[in-house]
């Protein structure tokens, strides 16, 4: 009986240690969120740059 309990304990330890190497779920979620935020910022940057260029060309038209 004592041997069995010991084996169960060792088995649990083995299971836990094998689980340690798995990537953290919260980290994964954070990465996904940051990726989507980066995408949002990227799109914002691009649209601002496009508008800026359009405004500059419109101003050039005015000066001509």
């Amino acid at each position: 009986m004592r041997d069995l309990l010991l084996l169960i304990f060792i088995g649990l330890l083995f299971g836990c240690s094998s689980n340690e190497n798995k990537p953290d779920q919260t980290e994964k979620i954070e990465v996904e969120q940051l990726d989507s935020l980066i995408n949002v910022l990227d799109n914002t940057q691009k649209s601002i740059e496009i508008s800026k260029q359009e405004l500059e060309s419109a101003l050039l038209d005015l000066e001509l």
Binding site: L4, L7, I8, G11, L12, F14, G15, N19
Partner: peptide, 10 residues
């Protein structure tokens, strides 16, 4: 039992 517990805990 050892294998079973390992599997279950994982």
């Amino acid at each position: 039992l050892f294998l079973l517990m390992g599997l279950l805990s994982t």
